[in-house]
Design a binder for these strands. Structure first.
Length: 190
DNA sequence: GAGCTGATTGTCT
DNA sequence: GACAATCAGCTCT
């Protein structure tokens, strides 16, 4: 039994959780690493899949906090999200590989650690994420393993990328100075 | 090193 | 029928 209450952790304001996820350890079947980059999505803004209400695709976002939401992006990639309070979600954009690296190299067909999980689609492939297998599951039950950090890293904040709506919201969070980010953060102090 | 473009398929209008 | 929370490969500087 984990002493960590995942529902309480995720049942909070989505941008707060997105920031606290940085440095946490996420494994899928023993493969994964340290979360290095996240983006927050809330139903009140148009970039969120839950903005238009519940559909078959986004049903997992309405199951409650600490769930996993998986969707296909551009018809090719699987993207991995955590569900938070009020049908909000956090897209995991990048991970620093620490566990099962050989498995990730095999799945990605690459040997460069920095390219294994530095983007939502790459991450989904490296961790073997698919919608039929993982969508709607709880994050604290197998095959997942989630461990929050006890030593929060320095954080950089910026506007979300890869979207066409609500692009001005500073809801993208990353570990400052990490070599595993999907893209560099726009220069800004603090 | 930075920036642009084609690929590919499920979902929504 | 059009779009999309992306990636990889190519061109240009």
């Amino acid at each position: 039994m984990p002493s960590f209450d995942s529902i309480a952790f995720f049942n909070r304001e989505v941008t707060l959780v997105a920031r606290e996820l940085l440095g946490a350890r996420l494994l899928v079947d023993g493969v994964g690493g340290i979360i290095a980059e996240t983006e927050a999505y809330h139903p009140t803004e148009p970039a969120s899949h839950s903005h238009r209400g519940k559909t078959e695709r986004n049903a997992s976002m309405f199951l409650g906090p600490a769930r996993v939401y998986v969707y296909r992006s551009y018809g090719i990639h699987w993207c991995f999200n955590f569900v938070c309070a009020d049908a909000s979600a956090i897209l995991i954009r990048a991970i620093e590989p620490t566990d099962g690296i050989e498995k990730m190299i095999e799945r990605r067909g690459l040997t460069n650690l920095r390219d294994l999980c530095s983007g939502p689609g790459k991450l989904g492939q490296a961790l073997g994420i698919t919608r039929p297998t993982h969508d709607g599951l709880m994050i604290d039950a197998p095959p997942f393993s989630f461990t929050p950090t006890t030593t929060p890293p320095a954080v950089v904040i910026g506007p979300r990328i890869g979207i066409t709506k609500a692009t001005d919201l500073p809801w993208r969070f990353g570990i400052a100075g990490s070599a595993f980010l999907s893209k560099a953060f726009r220069p800004s102090s603090t």
